[in-house]
Nucleic acid binder design. Structure first.
Length: 280
DNA sequence: ACCCAGGAAATTC
DNA sequence: GAATTTCATGGG
């Protein structure tokens, strides 16, 4: 049992429920005591907050408390970026933007692993969040490594690349299974290089991701925002189209600036939790 | 039975 | 090229 403690900056904040259950990640589960169990970087951990300090507990002996691992989890929860300042700037853009940010002020954009984001958002297309979670979890329990406590690592591209569509039928993912296999094969051959895409100019990065079957403009932007931390991306799904048409009729994604992706996440969560705004 | 879901591909006009 | 239909699956 090891423990990492990371204190946030004075005017900054992190709310685990808002961040881990706002539709950007599909693998974390809340425990009865308010902590969250999950897996990232192949590590099974329990995350919790104490005042303004993030606590990462691991049951594994080999998960050493060292500087490198501390930096890794600070990176995952994006603690190097000050969201207090960003929220202040976004709130000046539009009064409803301010409402959305204040509705869930502890949301942060995670630094998820690119391959996990790629698969998760391929699965997300024309689907609902509850079923997405089920499919992603079956993906891990069937093809990932057992980490104990009934939690599994995210399957590698290499492993998935060798499977057939019938192997993936246990997922219940429907036609999306074909897309997952294509993504895995292109990753293994090097035709798709996620590390390089992460650093590409945005138009080129989008184009590269869309070479994968089942990845269009929306899924590409989700992979870029959630898996590659390209904060200028503003994924437009059915909820965001509704929200923009109703709440920001005169605005476009670019109007939110270099941190548009963070604005998008506030607006997405705000809209999904307040559906009465869209009933006519 | 019908409609929707963090869309994209295939087909048709 | 733009608009429409189809795709597999589960839930309401």
């Amino acid at each position: 049992m090891s423990e990492i403690r990371i204190k946030l900056a004075e005017n900054d904040e992190l709310n685990l429920r808002e961040t881990l259950d706002c539709g950007q990640s599909f693998r974390w589960t809340e425990n009865a005591d308010g902590t969250f169990s999950g897996v990232a970087f192949g590590q099974y951990v329990i995350a919790s907050m104490e005042n303004n300090t993030l606590i990462i507990n691991s049951l594994k002996e080999n998960n050493e408390v060292n500087e490198k691992n501390e930096r890794l989890w600070a990176y995952y929860f994006d603690l190097n970026l000050n969201y207090g300042d960003i929220k202040e700037n976004l709130s000046c853009i539009h009064p409803i933007m301010k409402n959305a940010a204040e509705f869930a002020p502890g949301i942060r954009i995670l630094n998820q692993e690119p391959w996990e984001a790629l698969c998760s958002f391929i699965i997300s297309q024309n689907n609902n969040i509850k079923r997405i979670k089920g499919i992603v979890n079956r993906f891990c329990t069937n093809f990932g490594d057992d980490l104990g406590e009934n939690l599994y690592s995210f399957p590698t591209a290499k492993k998935i690349s060798a499977l057939s569509e019938s192997d993936l039928s246990v997922l219940g993912a429907g036609y999306r299974s074909e897309y997952l296999i294509d993504a895995a094969q292109k990753t293994v051959t090097g035709e798709l290089n996620l590390k390089e895409i992460k650093a590409m100019p945005i138009a080129e990065a989008r184009q590269e991701l869309q070479k994968v079957k089942g990845i269009g403009p929306k899924v590409a932007d989700c992979v870029l925002l959630y898996g590659m931390h390209r904060l200028e991306c503003f994924p437009m799904d059915v909820w965001m189209k509704r929200a923009m048409a109703t709440l920001f009729p005169s605005m476009s994604p670019e109007d939110f600036g270099e941190y548009a992706g963070i604005a998008q996440q506030y607006i997405f969560h705000y809209s999904r939790m307040n559906t009465e705004m869209f009933e006519s």
